[in-house]
Design a protein around this nucleic acid. Structure first.
Lengths: 348, 348
DNA sequence: TTGAAAGCGCTAACAG
DNA sequence: CTGTTAGCGCTTTCAA
């Protein structure tokens, strides 16, 4: 039998009556606010636990905070995002804040819908991970609610940002491959045309870092980019394209681990071996890259740290909305595994 | 410069004034409720879009619905859950409901915290994916808010449930391996002692299905189970244990894809090849299993369908809270890839 | 069909 | 330090 709806929820009024104090007192205890004697706190706490009272976030949201942080991320299948989330939840673990995330925010339209939904629900702060929305849109959102943007370059006066140095990361990859004697190093990038995003999105920065590093090594003529997307399919198609060149590359730098996986599929289909015939390096050092059967050389971004920084910043901004914005920039490292090695004589 | 907080949000009162009607009328239009003429609807809709009004979910939650469905799932790294989520969002795409999920709910304590958080936020319905909480707890939650439990066997009068036939899935695996001539087929299970969970959790059902199928093939004496956990590490340790047997198995049935990955690592470390020396089969057919370098034979559960069913049920229960509970049970299929084959003479 | 008015549970002025 | 009271933005009786 399903009950029609249990006994009415315990409210702050019930607690106040039970503790023989005013609702204000209860409210103050709830928020650890100033102006409540230890004795009063004690009494109220006891009443709260005796009645099993839990404050309604909806009601709180109408006046004050909801103690909710919204996290928007492009997709759940990218395991790197899970690291960021771990960092966020770890940082917020001891606080009263609850993290909620919205799935399926790929594309500008879906992002708008999600950001609106979070604002409608009176969330106290937003952490936007690798958003593709226009800067104008992000700025508008940040003016409405404390916001931290993760994984997008360029300082904003409206929101804090946490990024990894993608130019340096791409440089690490090229350096590593050149050290092993590679010269024909190709890159698979996420296609980008919008000028703002060309400057701000990590994918564009990685492509730029690749170009810079190639030139720094005197390999400007060898620059070869397949422009697809940061998906498994994009990696597959990009690698197909690169393998069809008259002189195929001896190494491919994929802009993301998932792209590297697609590329590995294409390479296997072409009957080539990794790293015998061709080396491949990814980006993100997601859990995937570490899996034994994959063992992908990749750039590590310390997603946990990025998440922790983002959480710290958003809480700080909730407390002080008009402090100047901060830009946190972390340094990547290269994790060498089995997919990269010196080119063989034949391929060379 | 960060603005102190933009101009006050547009409220239902502003809309009513602008459209020259009552707030009641606006509320009715918002909810598509009975009792508003087409002309009135028209006027109100226009005012809403002119002012860019968006209803506050916090305020709505105080009286009516919040149009929010909460999804709780054990972890983000299991890609199978992403499929379920896709099904949920696809099903809810056309409706007014917004899906929000809470990360990091591993363990009974974390689950309790998350379920409470969702109830505190007046969510209209909950979808709990593979929860480990006690049945009593789940029942209590379901009495408070419409709830659908996914991936847990056993009917409840309090909540609807969506499961996949795990006994049948395990049977498919054993059948497949036996057909290829395997006899020493081992299993890595998620350790379970709680009697209720032994009957309800998918992991226990899979182990049971494995035992049943082995006996059905007259291989009762060959039953060999390593009891660890459904994690990559659990797979690694489980495989190590199985490989150390005097007579090592020729095939391992891992209870989940992630477990299979850990096992593959242990197998590679032992200098054995897959499927030459040992076949391995996973469960979930997650995106991971399909990756070229992994190419894992696995049981497919159609997570999208499970998610869609769960979403449909929760919406239906929001509309009709005291209808009898439903149990949806889907049938799994086996996807054969490169990690399973006939045992070689030597190993046999 | 429409609107006035009374809350939902909580917070924040303000008074005592 | 404590309590009274007026809303927050919406939904929902209940009259008109």
């Amino acid at each position: 039998m399903v009950e029609k709806a249990g006994p009415r929820r315990v409210t702050i009024v019930d607690v106040a009556r039970h503790a023989q104090v005013s609702t204000t007192a209860v409210s103050k205890v709830l928020r650890n606010a100033y102006g409540a004697s230890p004795a009063m706190r004690e009494k109220v706490q006891q009443a709260i636990s005796e009645l099993g009272f839990r404050p309604s976030a909806a009601a709180r949201g109408l006046r004050g905070q909801t103690y909710t942080i919204g996290v928007m991320l492009p997709e759940l299948r990218n395991l790197f995002f899970a690291d960021i989330l771990d960092g966020i939840t770890a940082q917020l673990g001891g606080t009263d804040y609850q993290v909620l995330l919205a799935p399926g925010c790929n594309g500008e339209k879906a992002e708008a819908r999600v950001m609106d939904a979070m604002i409608d629900r009176s969330m106290d702060g937003l952490i936007l991970i690798a958003p593709v929305s226009s800067k104008k849109r992000l700025t508008a959102v940040a003016h409405t609610v404390p916001t931290v943007v993760v994984g997008r370059h360029g300082a904003s006066p409206a929101y804090d940002s946490v990024t990894d140095d993608d130019v340096a990361g791409a440089g690490l990859v090229v350096d590593h491959l050149v050290e092993h004697g590679h010269r024909r190093i190709a890159h698979i990038e996420h296609h980008e045309t919008d000028p703002v995003r060309l400057a701000e999105m990590p994918n564009a920065q990685r492509a730029q870092g690749y170009r810079d590093a190639m030139r720094a090594h005197g390999l400007g003529d060898e620059i070869d980019i397949a422009s697809t997307s940061y998906t498994q399919e994009g990696g597959y198609l990009g690698a197909k394209e690169l393998l069809a060149r008259p002189q195929r590359p001896t190494a491919i730098f994929a802009g993301a681990d998932i792209v590297a996986l697609g590329a590995m599929e294409a390479i296997a289909q072409a009957g080539l071996t990794i790293p015998g015939d061709i080396s491949i390096v990814g980006y993100d050092n997601s859990a995937l890259a570490a899996f034994a059967p994959v063992s992908l050389t990749s750039v590590d971004q310390d997603g946990r740290q990025m998440g922790a920084d983002a959480a710290r910043l958003v809480v700080s901004r909730i407390g002080e909305r008009d402090r100047r914005t901060a830009q946190v920039k972390l340094s990547p490292t290269l994790v060498v595994r089995r997919t990269s090695a010196a080119p063989t004589g034949a391929a060379r």
